[in-house]
C-alpha cells in the first residue's frame, strides 16, 4: 500500500504541471489577447495596457511567464484583481461557501444515488425499479439550470418551502435546494451505475459460492454484491468532483450564491482573464488532489489495484 501511495503521488506531479500549463497556455498563448479581451474591444490606453502586461509578466517570454505563474501559485500568490484586491483573499472569501455547497451536493448525490441504485438493482423489473429508472433518465436529460429554475419556482416561489436565493451567510437551509440541484445529474448517473453493477454482480460465481456456504441473503447481499458493486461507484464519485465544480458555476448563478462559481462568472463578464485562470487553477489542483484521494480509497476497496 505504501509503495502504491507514493507511486500515485509521483504520478500526480506531471498531471499538476500539465493541467496548469494547459490552462495557462490557453489563455496567454492562444491568438486571443487577454488584455485586449479586458477592454472588450474598446480602445485601450497604451500606458494602462503596458502596466497590466507587466503586472502579469505578459511582457516576458511565455515559458518564463508560466514558470513565474507556477512559482507564485505555489506561494498562493495570484496577484491582484482589477479592483486591486488580492486574488487569493477574494477567492478565500468565496471558497468556504462553494465547498459547503459542493460537499452538500456530494453527500446528497452519493447517499440518494447509491440508495436508489441499490433499491432498483436488487429488485430489477419491479415497478419502483421502473420509476427510479425513468426519474434518473429525466434528471440526466434536463439541464441543471432548467431543473434549478423549476425547483426554485415551485419550492421557493410558489410553495415557499425553502429560500429562493441564498443569503450572504449561505446557511444550510439556503444551500439545501442548490445542493440538490447541483447533485441531481450525478445522482442520476450514480443510480444507473450502481443499478447495473448490482445487476451484474448478482449473478457472479462468487456470489453463488457465498450462498452455497449457507450465508443468509442479507450477508451475501451486503458482503459480496454491494461491496463489489461500490468499487466503480467510488471511482465515479471521484471523477464527479470535477463536474461538481463546473456545475457550481451554474447553480451559484441561479441561486445567487456568493461562491467561487459566481466569482468566476463575474470575472468572465468583466473579462478579467487572470482571475479566471487563478480560480480554475486552484479548482483543478483540488480536483487532482481529490482524484488522488479517491484512487487511494479505490485501492483500499479493491486489493487488485494495490499491486
Amino acid at each position: 500500500m505504501g509503495k502504491y501511495f507514493w507511486h500515485r503521488v509521483l504520478q500526480a506531479i506531471p498531471v499538476v504541471i500539465g493541467t496548469t500549463f494547459i490552462i495557462y497556455a490557453l489563455v496567454f498563448l492562444l491568438p486571443g489577447d487577454p488584455v485586449k479581451a479586458m477592454f472588450r474591444g474598446k480602445a485601450a490606453n497604451p500606458a494602462v495596457e503596458a502596466q497590466i502586461r507587466s503586472q502579469y509578466n505578459l511582457d516576458k517570454p511565455f515559458i518564463v511567464q508560466y514558470l513565474l505563474f507556477l512559482w507564485n501559485a505555489l506561494h498562493l500568490d495570484f496577484g491582484m484583481t482589477f479592483s486591486q484586491q488580492s486574488v487569493i483573499d477574494t477567492i478565500g472569501r468565496a471558497f468556504p461557501v462553494t465547498i459547503k455547497l459542493a460537499l452538500m451536493a456530494f453527500v446528497f448525490e452519493a447517499v440518494f444515488g447509491i440508495l436508489l441504485g441499490i433499491l432498483a438493482g436488487l429488485h430489477k423489473g419491479t415497478w419502483y425499479d421502473g420509476v427510479i429508472l425513468v426519474l434518473s433518465l429525466l434528471l440526466i436529460s434536463v439541464p441543471t439550470f432548467v431543473t434549478g429554475y423549476l425547483l426554485q419556482y415551485f419550492v421557493g416561489v410558489k410553495w415557499g418551502l425553502l429560500p429562493v436565493t441564498a443569503s450572504a451567510a449561505a446557511t444550510f437551509n439556503d444551500l439545501l435546494m442548490p445542493a440538490m440541484v447541483l447533485g441531481s445529474v450525478s445522482m442520476a448517473s450514480i443510480i444507473r451505475l450502481s443499478r447495473s453493477e448490482i445487476d451484474t454482480n448478482k449473478t457472479a460465481d462468487y456470489v453463488r459460492t457465498a450462498r452455497a456456504k449457507g450465508m443468509s441473503n442479507y450477508s451475501v447481499t451486503v458482503r459480496h454484491i454491494l461491496r463489489n458493486s461500490m468499487i466503480p461507484v467510488v471511482t465515479y464519485l471521484g471523477q464527479d468532483i470535477g463536474a461538481l465544480m463546473g456545475g457550481a458555476m451554474i447553480t451559484e448563478r441561479i441561486f445567487n450564491i456568493q461562491g467561487v462559481g459566481n466569482l468566476t462568472y463575474q470575472a468572465i463578464l468583466r473579462g478579467e482573464a487572470p482571475l479566471v485562470v487563478s480560480v480554475v487553477t486552484i479548482l483543478v489542483l483540488i480536483f487532482v488532489v481529490c482524484n488522488l484521494l479517491v484512487d487511494l480509497l479505490y485501492a483500499a476497496l479493491d486489493p487488485r489495484i494495490r499491486y
Binding site: Y206, R223, R227, R304
Partner: peptide
C-alpha cells in the same frame, strides 16, 4: 457443501 468449477471466478476478489 459445494466446490465449484472455475477457480478463477468463484472467489470474491476483494476479500
Amino acid at each position: 457443501g459445494l466446490v465449484p468449477q472455475d477457480p478463477m471466478s468463484n472467489l470474491n476478489p476483494v476479500w
